[in-house]
Design a protein around this nucleic acid. Sequence first.
RNA 1: GGAGAGGUGGCUGAGCGGUCGAAAGCGGCGGUCUUGAAAACCGUUGAGGAGCAAUCCUCCGGGGGUUCGAAUCCCUCCCUCUCCGCCA
Length: 424
Amino acid sequence: MLDPRLLRTRLAEVAAHLARRGLVLDTGRIESLETERKGLQMQVQALQGERNARSKAIGQAKASGADIVPLLAEVSDLGDRLKAAEARLDEIRQTADAIGLSLPNLPHASVPDGRDERDNREERRWGEPPSFAFQPRDHVELGSLNGWMDFDLAAKLAGSRFVVLSGPLAGLHRALIQFMLDTHTREHGYTEVYVPYLVNADSLYGTGQLPKFEQELFKVPGERDLYLIPTAEVPVTNLLRDRILAAGELPRKWVAHTPCFRSEAGSYGKDTRGMIRQHQFEKVELVQAVRPEDAFQALEDLTGHAETILQRLGLAYRVVTLCAGDLGFAACKTYDLEVWLPGQETYREISSCSSFGDFQARRLQARWRNPDTGKPELLHTLNGSGLAVGRTLVAVLENYQDSDGRVIVPEVLRPYVGWQDVLA
RNA sequence: GGAGAGGUGGCUGAGCGGUCGAAAGCGGCGGUCUUGAAAACCGUUGAGGAGCAAUCCUCCGGGGGUUCGAAUCCCUCCCUCUCCGCCA
């Protein structure tokens, strides 16, 4: 959520920033709502004040034994007037809140202009895409050739966009998770957390998935109405909800491995082959909560932590800054890491590292006590994949294949798979 | 699934329908004392909003109701805890 004060006092500026996302703000409507709100609120507060004063007087009169009947007559219609004014104010508030919740975050000044992924800015490349003396297979071929990956079987169990992994590949998948968690906890200072995979609506409002993106979630119907998490970002960031942290507790750095569930409602026909876009996938997620002044550096650090995994695995990748038009709803700045996939002969997203400013913190009421002011102030939150496990598995298969369709195990993973050098 | 208890400020925890944004303790901050620290003592300390300001308004799990007036009474929903049953 944007700072409501910004919307009131610097509406034109906000509109200009949002225009970079390709969003046209109806400033006239917002201004007239605001004018109406202000008038009504002052009216309501005046009536409330009058009610309080008169009620207090009645209490005092009663205590001193005076006759309160005439006093009661004076306030006879006050309640009704107040109730009517409150109802109108409530209506305006709801409309204004709905608009507020629907507005995305403002892009950071360092974010390039642009409409979609074609306008993203490449920052750097790491590693060389491997060259093969043969026609490299994609992960689907490699998986089925070895009998490790079965989409038909998964379709029987659950439908499209699921997979069954078996044997050494299932083991490698697990090894990747372990390797990522170990690296982030031992070397990058993150605390591992295990969290619920089902969350309530409040949590999804907090991180910005609701109310706008309900169609991308799997809802579990029942008396409780829970949702399967689309990313660990939701439960982990919500650890901060309605809390005031002491300055000494910052920065908080959490890492969590969870499955992620996405309906992929808007992507029919996109990436239908293989494991790239699934309804269920594993991800190791990095989440940080920092002081506002540290957020910019924290994004660089967090992105670096994700990059470390790719580097240790020896996978070529590039880093791109998302342009304003491609930015996610809650983010003010995002770096995507894209790994080289020989099967597609292209770089594909494997991690997305974002800074949210105080956008999520405001919805979450996630605060810290600033020792300089003594006041609770909003935190800044960040998160990034470190990494998407399914896509990392794809990358390892395709980059480490030989001409016979065998797969070499990257060295850093060997301790996790019984020291095999070839997957078998 | 059955029975019961409870949700109050950063935390613990009091609170007859009226002067209660709320006792007390802890914690925090400031001070006295001390070479310094601890202890002790004194003072101070909830959050959000409107307004240039004086000041005013809202908030005691959420929502609704009764009342001139609700933390306190009623309804409803949510959550937590304890015991019994079942169970990975």
